[in-house]
């Protein structure tokens, strides 16, 4: 599957990357380079910010203004979360469709301003939730929707990783990221639960862990209740040690009346012992969901379709993450008001 679209006579899509802070930036670039019909214009940080990173064969622009002058059809926003709003507003005004990293903003207000900007400019906004494009999770969703396992009794979800403060310090910066482990990891599982059951999260209880000397929480456990009454947990902790064989994992167990689904989308791996690493590492041999996500985004741009993952998906998941902070402060359950858009 190498072509983004099957439609005949398509034009070349010009794609740009705005902001380079996110860990996925490099992966996106290497995928984009392999896609026919895609011209990667280049990358840029915000105006006046020199990039400390370079990517082989990719043009680095002096700033976002210079890059947007090249009239990209689509942009991918990979900056620190707090700058998403500024970059989305700039890209929307330049008429580019947007794929934005998660969480989409650090505040609900910023998120709403981003939506308004895209709406006014008539461009699409897609939230980057790659796990929706993972084959294992697509099968899981299908199994649940078929209902052959009976009623769901509950779900346990974990999205653990190593603490990013040593390699990508901004993820642990309360200003740049808007928080710590909760901001980083809550949204993926939240989105999957919403997507599996086509429903919203109604209530959130959270307990967070702040070790001494850390400016953000490094561990967190949430118990959320969906509109359909289902209770599900999310462990978003940065609780794997630095030398863990992989960045971490996303796993869930869906306990149903007639069986349990044990889901580990990253299970397909080899254990690699090499001289470059002091400890063995796990190397994936599964299809990369980021690639499928980029293909789906570009196809929606090419064919003028609505984005396969929406702004609302980003907004609702951000609401849940922010509610976790409130709950941990009050020590009680938080109810989410599902305002319509």
């Amino acid at each position: 599957m190498n072509a983004p679209v099957n439609a005949p006579a398509r034009r070349v899509l010009k794609v740009a990357i705005l902001g380079l802070a996110h860990v996925h930036t490099e992966g996106y670039i290497s995928i984009l380079k392999t896609l026919p019909g895609v011209e990667l214009l280049g990358c840029a940080e915000r105006d006046g910010i020199a990039s400390s990173r370079t990517f082989e064969g990719v043009k680095m622009f002096s700033g976002v203004t210079a890059l947007l002058e090249q009239r990209p059809d689509a942009v991918i926003i990979c900056s620190e979360t707090v700058f998403h709003r500024e970059l989305v507003e700039r890209a929307a005004r330049a008429g580019a469709h947007i794929l934005c990293e998660k969480p989409i903003a650090t505040t609900l207000e910023d998120a709403r301003i981003m939506q308004d900007a895209c709406h006014t400019a008539g461009v699409n906004f897609m939230t980057a939730f790659p796990m929706r494009f993972d084959i294992t999770l697509q099968h899981t969703r299908q199994t649940l929707q078929e209902g052959s396992l009976g009623a769901v009794l509950g779900i346990v979800g974990v999205n653990h990783s190593i603490n990013p403060s040593s390699h990508d310090a901004w993820f642990a910066d309360p200003i740049l990221a808007g928080g710590g482990a909760v901001m980083d990891h809550t949204v993926h599982l939240t989105d999957l639960y919403r997507w599996f059951f086509k429903t919203e999260i109604l209530e959130v209880y959270a307990a967070l862990g702040h070790p001494l000397g850390s400016s953000v929480e490094t561990s967190g456990i949430l118990l959320v209740t969906l509109e359909n009454g289902l209770h599900a947990s999310i462990d978003c902790s940065w609780s794997r040690p630095a030398h863990y064989p992989r960045w971490g994992h996303l796993k869930m167990e869906i306990v149903c009346e007639k069986g349990v689904l044990v889901v580990d989308p990253f299970a397909d791996h080899l254990t690699l012992f090499d001289t470059a690493n002091p400890a063995p590492t796990w190397v994936s041999f599964a299809p990369d969901p980021n690639r499928a996500m980029l293909l789906a985004f570009l196809e929606s741009v090419q064919k003028h379709l609505p984005p396969p993952v929406t702004w609302l998906d980003g907004y609702r998941t951000l609401q849940v993450a922010l509610s976790a902070y409130t709950s941990s402060q009050t020590g009680q359950l938080e109810r989410i008001t599902s305002q319509e858009f």
Partner: peptide, 9 residues
């Protein structure tokens, strides 16, 4: 300050 998650069924 530690937190514990328990699943039981």
């Amino acid at each position: 300050g530690a937190i514990t998650h328990i699943e039981c069924g």
